[in-house]
């Protein structure tokens, strides 16, 4: 699927009617969601044929993007039943299957190494201090390969440090900075895990990160500067 097609499908999804401020329910826009998952798939192979979990899935945008990119099994987790209902309607509209679970992220108790990839747009922790770190900590425990997460620019260094020091991430890279949306896309890769299968992957990945950063940089009109480059299959 082309990036534009993915973005357009996600753009039609139903979003929150009445966002709950205490849960920091800001929607994940189709623009960033499509690029996040497209990069995860086309640069890192973390989506198709994988088991993907969407933490704090809200209306399901990220998880549904994963299903559209042929993830084999996608599970959205959210605490709020109104959100889960919208996510369920969105999945039906797209005619895809997305499993949903109502649970608090810090109370998840998942067995085994079944989940490959976690994608999430967690609360920034502006309402409940540390909520973003709780999400990260659990995500890095559950994912056997990678966590893709959106964070506020000002928490960037703190999050990188904590991921490496406290949560056993083997690397933490900023792969995309979207100034307009004050979001930063961080990528955590469990290199130990990946290196068992792809011995030369570490170095290759570092190069890709730099390149991706340039490719996804936005200008002031929120347009991608080098959009055509994203279709390049690397």
């Amino acid at each position: 699927m082309k990036l534009k097609q993915l973005e357009s499908l996600l753009g039609n999804l139903q979003q929150f009617d009445n966002p709950k401020i205490e849960l920091e329910q800001y929607p994940t826009g189709a623009h960033i969601a499509s690029r996040m998952l497209y990069t995860a798939e086309n640069s890192y192979g973390d989506v198709s044929d994988k088991v993907v979990a969407d933490f704090g899935c809200g209306c399901g945008t990220l998880g549904l993007a994963a299903t559209l990119l042929d993830a084999e099994h996608v599970i959205g987790v959210d605490v709020d039943d109104d959100s889960l209902e919208i996510a369920s309607i969105n999945a039906d509209d797209l005619e895809v299957e997305m499993g949903l679970i109502q649970c608090q992220i810090n109370n998840l108790n998942w067995r085994g190494q079944i989940v490959d990839t976690v994608v999430m747009n967690p609360p920034f922790g502006t309402r409940k201090k540390g909520a973003d770190m709780e999400f990260l900590s659990v995500a890095l425990k559950v994912a056997s390969q990678a966590v893709y997460s959106l964070h506020k620019t000002t928490t960037r260094e703190h999050i990188k440090r904590a991921a490496l020091r406290d949560y056993n991430a083997s690397s933490a890279e900023v792969i995309c900075e979207v100034h307009i949306l004050i979001h930063i896309l961080l990528l955590y890769h469990n290199f130990d895990m990946i290196c068992q299968n792809y011995t030369n992957f570490t170095r290759k990945k570092t190069l890709i990160l730099l390149w991706t950063y340039g490719d996804l940089f936005l200008n002031q009109n929120n347009n991608l500067l080098h959009e055509k480059d994203i279709d390049v299959d690397f």
């Binding site: 099994h73 499993g99 109370n107 108790n109 998942w110 079944i114």
Partner: peptide, 21 residues
């Protein structure tokens, strides 16, 4: 809910040791 999901869920109640399956 698929059984693949069931296969990873376990009881998350505090103090429970054998919460699976």
């Amino acid at each position: 809910m698929r059984l693949l999901t069931h296969n990873m869920l376990s009881s998350n109640i505090k103090g429970v040791i054998n919460g699976f399956p």
